[in-house]
Each structure stands twice: as C-alpha cells, then as structure tokens.
Simulated assay, not measured.
Amino acid sequence: MSDPKQPQSEGTEETFISHLVELRDRIIRAGLAVIVVFVSLVYWAPDIFRLLARPLMMNLPKDGKMIVTDVTGSFFVPMKVTMLVAFVIALPIVLYQIWAFVAPGLYQHEKRLVGPLVGSSYTLFLCGMAFAYFLVFPTIFRVMAHYNAPLGAEMTTDIDNYLSFVMTMFLAFGVTFEVPIIVVLLVRTGLLSVNKLKEIRPYVIVGAFVIAAVVTPPDVFSQLILAIPLIVLYEAGIIAARLLVRKPPQTDADKENKEGSAVG
C-alpha cells in the first residue's frame, strides 16, 4: 500500500531543489556581471588606485609619498580597489538578480515598494561615498597634516592601511546616507510612528556622536562631519515619512471612540 504523503513530500523536495538551482543561477549571473566589469577595468587598476589616493596625495607635504610594506601590496591593493569599483558599478545587476529571485514570493503592493526602495538606496549609498571622497577625505587629511607638522613627523601611510581606512569611511557614510530610507521603512511598517521618532530625537543625536567618535579619527572636526549629516538625514527621514506614508483611514468605531472621548 502506497503512502499518500510520499507524493507530497517528493513535490516539496522538487520545489526546494528547483529554488536552489535558481538561486545558484542568479548568483552565477551576478558574479559574472562583477567579473565582466572587473576585467574591463583591470588594465586601468593603477589609475583607479591613484584616483582613490588623490585626496591624500593632495594633502601630503612636498615630495610626500605612500609606502608599501608588503611585498605583493603594490599589485594586490590596486586589484582590490578595482574589484570594489567593479562591484559598485555592477551592483544594479546584482540587486536585480536578488529581486528576480524573491519577487515571486512577494505581494503586489510589496513589489511596487521594492523598486523605488532599491533604486533610492543605491543612489543614496553612492551619494554617501561621493560625500566622503570629495568633502570628508580632504578635510581629514588636511587636519591630520596640520597635527603632524608641529611634531616634525613625516606623514606617510601604507597603501593597504589607506585602503582599509577609505573602505571603512565609504561604508560608514554610505550607510549614514541610508538613514532616510530606514526611517521611512520604520514608519511604513508600523514599528515606529512619526511622533515617536520625534520623541527619541535626543537619543539619536547622542548616538550619532557616539558612532562618529568610533568611526572617524579622534579629532572633533572629523567627528562633526559624520555626526551632523547623520542628524540632518534623520530629520529628512522624518519629513519624508510624514509626506510619503499615508495614515490608515479611520473606521466608524474609531470615529465613535474619538467622539465619545471628546464628550466625556
């Protein structure tokens, strides 16, 4: 006698395997997109690294140079930078592959939300990186050079350490510029209200300065150029949430309760 549960379990197993196969294909396509962009850029890897190092080189003393302490650093560091640039350029394709995988399991209203959410998140992350590159890096390096001058210390840095520093700053400011998206999502999902976000504003301000103190160099000015944008973006998120998130319509019971409380 056959087990009636066996066909159902086999169907579930086949569905699971098909999802794994699709996930594998999506990962391969996303990886190929990054590799294709990387191969297209690898010839210019030294130029890309020089472009990344430009904010520091502009603020080094005359005849100042970067150093290499690892035997293979002069080869692998530009390759790492080029790979990261390739990933940022190919990120829309990577995000599309993720979207194509999860889209069949989403409701229609969720699908309408994902597109603008992903696009705005990617744009804001790039804005955060640009803010760090064009404003934060020159400011920090200028301040550090000012501190080093009275000490008679020569301002040089290893290219691997420099890469680690700029990647940390890119990530910090990229995530910082995502704050409006996070705030809007918190309100839209009902986890927090706009009024509650206003109430916790003092804690957010303190948290912004704590994060800035951990991420940026120890001077006050460097901390301010991260903490202030974080606070401003939080306020922008509150404004965006007030404009974009619609209040649920009041039911008859809500109106009666409101009228009853007013009479009482």
Rank of each mutant, 00 (worst) to 15 (best):
A153R: 12
G128Q: 02
N161R: 13
M169C: 11
G115T: 13
F131R: 02
M144I: 09
D158P: 09
A153S: 15
V143F: 15
D160M: 15
V166Q: 04
M169N: 07
C127M: 14
G174A: 08
D158N: 13
F165L: 15
A153Q: 14
F131E: 06
F177K: 00
P180W: 03
I140C: 06
F170Y: 08
L163Q: 09
G115A: 14
M169E: 11
L113R: 04
L151H: 05
V118A: 05
P150A: 06
M167L: 09
I159M: 15
F137H: 03
F134A: 09
F141R: 08
F134G: 11
I159F: 07
T156N: 11
N161K: 13
M169D: 05
M155T: 14
I140M: 11
N161H: 13
P180C: 07
G174E: 02
I182G: 10
S120W: 05
F177H: 01
T139H: 10
T139I: 07
V166T: 14
V166L: 10
A149H: 06
F125A: 04
S164K: 13
T157P: 06
L113V: 08
N161E: 13
Y147M: 09
G174K: 01
F125P: 00
F131G: 05
M144A: 09
T156I: 12
V179Q: 04
A145I: 04
Y147T: 03
M169Y: 09
D160L: 14
P116Q: 04
S120Q: 06
P138Y: 05
F177M: 03
G174N: 04
T168F: 07
Y147W: 08
S121F: 14
A153T: 15
L124K: 01
N148G: 15
A130S: 10
G174R: 00
Y133L: 10
L163E: 04
M167K: 04
F173M: 07
D160Q: 15
F173I: 06
L151R: 09
C127D: 02
E178H: 11
P116H: 06
L117M: 13
A130R: 01
F131V: 07
L151T: 10
C127P: 01
S120V: 12
Y162P: 10
A153H: 10
L113P: 00
C127V: 12
L126T: 01
G119Y: 04
A132F: 06
A149I: 03
M129D: 03
F170I: 07
E178N: 08
F137E: 03
P138N: 08
F131T: 05
A153V: 15
I181M: 12
L135S: 08
T157H: 12
L124A: 10
I182T: 10
M169T: 14
A172L: 06
G152Y: 07
F177P: 00
V114E: 00
F141I: 09
M155W: 10
V166F: 08
V175C: 09
F165T: 15
A132S: 13
F173L: 11
F170Q: 02
Y133H: 10
A153P: 00
